[in-house]
Amino acid sequence: MITVELEDADVERILARLSASLSDMSEVMNEIGEQLEFETVKRFEDGVAPDGTSWAPKSPTTIAAYERRGQTVDVRPLFGPNVDGQPLRSSFFRDYGPDFVELGTNKIYSAVMQFGAAKGAFGTDARGGSIPWGNIPARPFLGISDQDRLNIAAIVEEWLEDIVED
């Protein structure tokens, strides 16, 4: 076995900074979260899933339902009237800590929009109508795209370079 012992003050200082930084990566996690939120909002505006596929269009039945209620119709999927008046696209939040980043929304209907739901998946209403009243296609808006992976790698690389160069 060969042992190499480094006795270089500059190298020791760099390794100490690296070790200290890796124990609390809040700064880089915040940057990753900001980037993921930016890309998620952009994908939302573009109407595409993290894998780049376009969302299913809003159905003619849904558009007709809005019109019957006298609501303004936005034909883009996931845009339009909602229960609380706050659009899904503006409800994103992020959190981060020493070793995590989280991006999401607290809208109760967001899981149905992300994963879809079959007609009647949630039972029936008081009049016996299906909840939801029709099939809702999945329109994934949360997730990590190939571009997100590249962005995260670049953010981490720059963060590590800053630690070593200080």
Rank of each mutant, 00 (worst) to 15 (best):
V41R: 14
G33P: 02
T124Y: 00
K107I: 13
W159T: 02
L88D: 04
F122R: 13
E45L: 14
L36G: 02
S90T: 15
P140L: 00
I32S: 07
G129I: 00
G52N: 11
E157A: 13
E12G: 06
E37L: 13
S91D: 05
D51F: 06
D148C: 03
N151S: 08
S130N: 10
G47V: 08
D166I: 09
P77A: 15
M29A: 07
E39I: 00
E37T: 08
S21L: 06
G80N: 03
Q71D: 14
V11S: 06
A20Q: 15
L78G: 03
A154Y: 01
Q147N: 15
S23K: 12
V156R: 11
P50L: 05
Y96M: 00
G47L: 02
V83F: 11
G52W: 01
D99M: 05
R69E: 15
M113I: 05
E158C: 07
L18K: 04
E31I: 02
I136F: 08
E5Y: 08
R68K: 14
Q147P: 04
K119Y: 03
P77L: 12
R89Q: 09
I144L: 09
S90C: 00
M29W: 01
D84S: 12
L22Q: 06
G143D: 02
I163A: 02
W159S: 07
G85A: 02
R43I: 08
F79I: 08
D166S: 15
R43E: 03
T124S: 11
G47H: 06
K107C: 10
T61C: 05
M29I: 01
A138K: 04
M113D: 12
E158A: 14
D95A: 12
D95I: 03
E34Y: 00
V101K: 01
G134T: 07
Q86M: 11
D166G: 14
N106C: 13
F122L: 13
R69M: 14
D24C: 08
E7Y: 13
M113R: 06
A154K: 10
K42E: 14
F44I: 04
D74F: 08
Q35F: 02
V73L: 05
R17P: 03
A154T: 05
N30D: 14
P140C: 02
L150H: 06
F79T: 01
R68H: 08
D162S: 14
G123V: 11
G120A: 07
E27T: 15
E102K: 14
P140Y: 00
L160H: 01
L18F: 12
Q35D: 12
P98I: 00
A49F: 06
